[in-house]
């Protein structure tokens, strides 16, 4: 996703004038080279200074430029939170905050680098949109959306060399719309971000062992949420499961449950998210998911038991 973002940003800069990327001593190194070579004045490294990264982007946007702020997800919003809130969101400026390694991607770096409640925090700010693509293909589409939006966006990316999952998706990527990426009739799994691959693993096992037809939807635009699309899913499936790499607090799962109540949904609704706790463990990203109670087996068993 990281490299796809850098490559796409280069394409954006070739097509539009005044596209800037402002980084805080973190960069998609090699893949950023074409951009840096062709637009050296538009690649700005402010150093380890995240507050200035955000405010400087606001200044660029106030001059009509398209600005991307880029660093590790935790540092992109927690450290400069007030700059994000006032300079970008209050003023509703077209700046994209790119949080690389959202969720627990930085699995060996420890809790200081886990952005597990980032969407709740940043999504609570008026005007802010949140996009969390599940694969490189969605990252490409999302980067274009960010460049063309007239307001602030938090683009939450993985960084672990995610595989493409949406190449055969029956529906296209559209900002603000949940997107069917796999057909199915009985069970629907809604997910976003790199944990989407776990949704596919669960679906495969349900289809193989339980003969259940499983649809998968990508809720890449977590805010503004496609409430009409979610309601349709709640109407059309007997079992709906939300799987996400984000704290249960301020989660997509919680919002889907709220919608289910509003529409008096009759489906079985299950939600799977990160725990509302800091974990003190290291390993792979999948080890972190496991430590938070997120495994394909747990999700599979819950869906089978609940259906």
């Amino acid at each position: 996703m990281r490299d796809t973002f850098a490559r796409t940003l280069y394409q954006v800069a070739k097509k539009r004038s005044n596209v800037f990327i402002v980084v805080a001593d973190i960069s998609p190194a090699g893949s950023m080279a074409p951009f840096r070579e062709e637009f050296p004045d538009h690649f700005i490294n402010v150093g380890v200074a995240e507050q200035t990264m955000i405010s400087l982007c606001a200044g660029l946007a106030l001059r009509g430029c398209t600005a991307f702020a880029y660093t590790i997800a935790t540092f992109s919003i927690y450290r400069p939170f007030e700059q994000v809130r006032i300079d970008l969101c209050y003023q509703n400026l077209p700046v994209t905050v790119v949080g690389i390694g959202g969720g627990v991607s930085y699995s060996t770096l420890g809790g200081t680098h886990h952005a597990q409640e980032d969407i709740a925090v940043v999504g609570a700010i008026p005007n802010m949109a949140v996009i969390a693509p599940c694969d490189p293909l969605e990252t490409e589409a999302a980067t274009w959306v960010c460049a063309e939006r007239n307001g602030p966006t938090y683009l939450r990316l993985g960084k672990a060399g995610e595989p493409n999952l949406t190449g055969d998706a029956p529906e296209p990527f559209e900002f603000g719309k949940v997107r069917k990426i796999k057909e199915g009739r009985d069970v629907c799994i809604i997910a976003y971000g790199p944990i989407m691959k776990m949704a596919f693993e669960v679906a495969e096992k349900l289809e193989r062992d339980e003969q259940r037809s499983v649809a998968i939807y990508s809720a890449h635009t977590v805010k503004p949420l496609d409430t009409a699309g979610i309601k349709r899913i709640l109407d059309n499936f007997e079992t709906v499961a939300v799987v996400e790499e984000h704290s249960v607090r301020g989660s997509l799962g919680g919002q889907v449950k709220q919608l289910a109540w509003d529409v008096r949904a009759n489906c079985k609704l299950l939600t799977f998210s990160l725990r509302d706790e800091f974990i003190h463990q290291f390993g792979s990203q999948r080890d972190m998911w496991t430590a938070h109670g997120l495994t394909p087996e747990i999700i599979y068993d819950a869906i089978v038991a609940g259906s």
């Binding site: 200035t52 405010s55 400087l56 200044g59 007030e82 700059q83 006032i86």
Partner: peptide, 25 residues
Amino acid sequence: IEAATGSLGHGLPITVGMALADKVQ
């Protein structure tokens, strides 16, 4: 009014961004 101020410490980095945009353009 070029930007919302009131919370201190925002103005200088915002104007650095504006000045940078003007310089590059």
